[in-house]
Design a protein around this nucleic acid. Structure first.
Lengths: 247, 247
DNA sequence: GCTGTTTAATTGTCAGACAATTGGTTGTCC
DNA sequence: GGACAACCAATTGTCTGACAATTAAACAGC
């Protein structure tokens, strides 16, 4: 494998950095139009394709959006929560899959953050959010539900809990983390027999949220965490055994 | 302002998406070499510049790195915590600056997550981390410290606290959040008189961490949060008054 | 005043070329 | 035979110039 030495910053990345810091520092405001590609090319003394590569880098980070036509061009983008959320997920998934993160560590982080939301969620949850959580719990109780659908409902439930905290910044961070961890979670939730217990714990959580009972909610989340870790350990042990018996 | 409608996905972004999902799904593993630009161009039936734009998009997300020369090319990158951290900061800063996040909301999120680390940090902190925190507190006590240096030390202190939790996933999330919030924090910490109280609270936090006293640590963080909010409110009120008197 | 058409500006794409970099290969000299 | 230098091939980085597609605005006709 080649070493990860960044030898020389090429011109397109230099230009991208210059424009990026202009945006981050506020010299370019949201909605501002960047100079046209031809103008930028002149300005930086490079050709248009080079400028374009730089712009594509910024577009990949949702910093700008481009439009064709007269009065088109590149505009400083309004970074929405959705866009940030997607980036968070991509980064999270890769980070987890590429860094040999143990399941326990990822799980600990996820539940630590979720427990951080719990007090706020208990204090601020509204009827719609409670209803949403109850709906997901009911759906999860259906034995006919596919594993995929169960996992999706699981994500929706926790998402609703996090949103109940009523803090968009927390929602952004947490929702990204939870979804990034989903592939790992799927490995273990694809065993049907654990469903009943998970549903029971989800029920306890939503009950606690409705009753605004912070400590019960916290305990339920802890129980869910330890149960998750436990199931994972069991699945791993089973796999190891299977691998042995194959030999 | 032009509307934010994504009209047609252009070819370079289509190719970028295809390659990105190949990486995320694991069809391309870390260290794998992508086909050369010419080959990709043939494969997708486009020209080389178009392929290059797609590759630059991936490079902007640290998904690939490129090297020139024989046996050069584009390689699937190992996403390090550092790279993820940087992206987290960029995204966070933009999100905060572009979405009219109130200081209180950002502050609440930051401290909620930091309090989530506190129990782990109290349980696992080692001597080096405690020493690091104490060093920063000592530095902050120096009245000759510039405001910039004080803020940097503040970040370092909280970073050390988060790292003490010994969970790299949490560190990644938190460190990004704390640093992204720093520009907002700077607005208020640039008033010298609040330093003594902040230093005192930092002292209480590190003492609690050393004593493995979770509840004291939690309380100290709560106090720091409310004090931060309070100072911010005072600064805002003062500014408003000034603006009035100017009229 | 309204409608349809033209027009200009701008991004998206292509083709071909050359420069820069890097690893391997080959050949020469000791 | 071995060490060192020169060369070569592959690949990315960049340039030039061109054309297509798209869009808003100016304009002509009624």
């Amino acid at each position: 494998m080649p070493p990860a030495t960044p030898p020389v910053p090429d011109r397109s990345s230099t230009i991208a950095s210059a424009l990026r810091s202009a945006i981050v520092d506020g010299r370019l405001m949201v909605g501002d139009r960047l100079p046209s590609e031809t103008e930028l090319a002149e300005q930086y003394g490079v050709s248009r394709p080079t400028v374009r590569e730089a712009l594509k880098r910024l577009a990949a980070q949702s910093l700008i959006r481009t439009r064709r036509g007269a009065s088109g061009g590149a505009f400083v983008n309004h970074l929405s929560y959705d866009a940030a959320h997607d980036q968070q997920i991509t980064t999270g998934v890769l980070l987890l899959s590429m860094n040999a993160i143990s399941f326990d560590v990822a799980c600990e982080a996820r539940f630590a953050m979720e427990r951080a939301c719990a007090p706020l969620a208990c204090a601020r949850r509204n009827e719609a959010q409670l209803r949403c959580m109850r709906t997901e719990v009911a759906r999860q109780s259906d034995p006919g539900l596919t594993d995929e659908a169960f996992c999706a409902s699981d994500v929706a439930f926790h998402r609703a809990l996090v949103d109940a905290a009523g803090n968009p910044v927390l929602s952004w961070q947490l929702a990204g983390a939870v979804e990034a961890m989903q592939p790992l979670m799927n490995m273990i939730t694809f065993t049907a027999r654990s469903r009943a217990r998970i549903v029971a714990l989800h029920g306890r959580i939503v009950d606690a949220a409705e009753a605004m009972d912070v400590s019960t909610c916290d305990t339920a989340l802890r129980d869910l965490e330890s149960y998750t870790v436990e199931v994972h350990a069991a699945v791993m042990a089973q796999r190891a055994e299977k691998a042995c018996s194959v030999r």
